[in-house]
Structures are given as structure tokens and as C-alpha cells.
Design a protein around this nucleic acid. Sequence first.
DNA 1: ATAAAATATGAATACTTGTTCATATATTCA
DNA 2: TGAATATATGAACAAGTATTCATATTTTAT
Lengths: 124, 124
Amino acid sequence: MIKSLAACEETVIHEDEVLAASRTLIDGQTAGRLAQIFSALSDPTRLRIISALSDHELCVCDLSVVLGMSQSAVSHQLRLLRNLNLVKYRKEGRIVYYALDDEHIRELYERGLEHTAHQKKLEA
Amino acid sequence: MIKSLAACEETVIHEDEVLAASRTLIDGQTAGRLAQIFSALSDPTRLRIISALSDHELCVCDLSVVLGMSQSAVSHQLRLLRNLNLVKYRKEGRIVYYALDDEHIRELYERGLEHTAHQKKLEA
DNA sequence: ATAAAATATGAATACTTGTTCATATATTCA
DNA sequence: TGAATATATGAACAAGTATTCATATTTTAT
């Protein structure tokens, strides 16, 4: 398995593996895009918003009541989710209804939940 | 669909929907746990580490060569991934080999990739 | 037109985080 | 034992971020 044993600083320890990994490594742009998506899901407030919307749409006011947070805080987070296309919205008069943008989001969210359940089981 | 029309500040706009959402809303602890997992995936460097390890294990030195980053930076990120059980490691002498901890991680990572592909298609 | 209500947003602040630099730890080999 | 090497880690700094507060925008109703 171990091919090259030269010093790490100058050459590389496992040349073949390094080359193989380099070939399949995602590029910086893709990594950035991906990081952005996961970043959107990396905040408790945003996850609770997604949880609240996982059933059906809610207006901003409803959301702030459900989450027990200020309208402003919710609105700021919604803007972020909106900009990343995780949620969509429709206006009805002065009320704005938010909903999950598509099934991909729910998928990611639920896979994440599965993982936490998995981890919780490991701890017990 | 719209049940209650009282003012948002005092009562709630859509009382039934708010109650329904409140019942299924994930609790703060779960949201925190989940946020932690997604946080681990929310950084380009860590995603590239996961990408590099998605084929098979690599030592820290290999990783820093593949990513073109300092050993210290890689090591710090590995510690984070380790603490969250996203990667496991085995020592062989003074060399430490890292690998993805289990299939859950790969699952999340690949779902994320699918989503970026999905988004890219939308933009085009 | 004017007031009221729902949502959005800019600025400020406190907090978190990724990298670097220097150094510590641990393991091998002479 | 002592030097060399792979990895880990603490401190510091720069950059990013979540919330609050005040205020702007938009729409409805009088």
C-alpha cells in the first residue's frame, strides 16, 4: 500500500494515493458552492425555520411566533435562505408566505436528522 | 386556509398553522446538534478533506499536499472533524491515517453535491 | 391623503471561526 | 540518549456572522 517513503516536506509519503486523491478532489469553486449550502443549514435558527416550513408555508409573523424570535431576526435569516434558494415566497397583500424551495432541501435536512439520531444512539 | 386574522403582535395571523408548526418544530437541542453537523460541512477546506478521503484513507501529510495547505491548518480542521465523529483515524508509528467515519457522512456530502449540480443547472 | 400593519434592511455590536506562527508531543532510528 | 520527523495544539489575528435597534418600504383601510 505504501509506495513512496520520502520526506513529507519535500516529496510526499504516499505518492500514488496523493495523485489519485488529487484527481478526484473537488475544485475550489465546487467546494465553495457546497460550503455555502451547508452553511445555510449550519445555524439552529435557520434549521428551526426549515423545520417549521417542512409541513407547509407560513408567513413571517407566524414564523416569528413559532420560533419565539423577533420579526427582524427571522426576516434577516429568511433573506439569507432566500438568496441561496432554500426557500421561496409569495406575496398576498402585505403578507409574505415562505415555503421550502424544493425537495432537495427537505432531503438534506432529513438526512441530517437521521445522522443526529445515529449519533445519539452511539452515545447511549 | 386562513383562520385567524388578529394582529400579529398580539395574537397570531394563522393560529392553526402556527399550532401545527409548533407541534412538529424540532427542539433547540436537536437544532443545535444538527447545526453542528452541518457546520462541520460548511467550510471549503473541510469539504475538500472529505472529498480527498472519500476514496480511501490518507495521512495528514498526504492531505496537506493534496490540498496545498499547511500541515497545521489541516491538522486543526481534522481535529474538528474528529471531535464531531466525521472522520476516524488510526496510528501507524508516527503516521496518522484519517478516513471517513461512516457512510452517513458520504451520504450527506453526496446529497450536497447533487444539490449544487441541481442549482448549477437552474442557473444555466 | 393618512394611519396602521407586515415585512425588509442598514448599522452596530458581540461572538464565532479559519489560518498562521511558534512550539509541544510522540515515535523512529542512529 | 539524541536527532529527526509526523502530528497536535495554544495564542493571536483577521474575517465572517447572528441578533438588536431603529427605520424604511409596501400595502391596506379609513
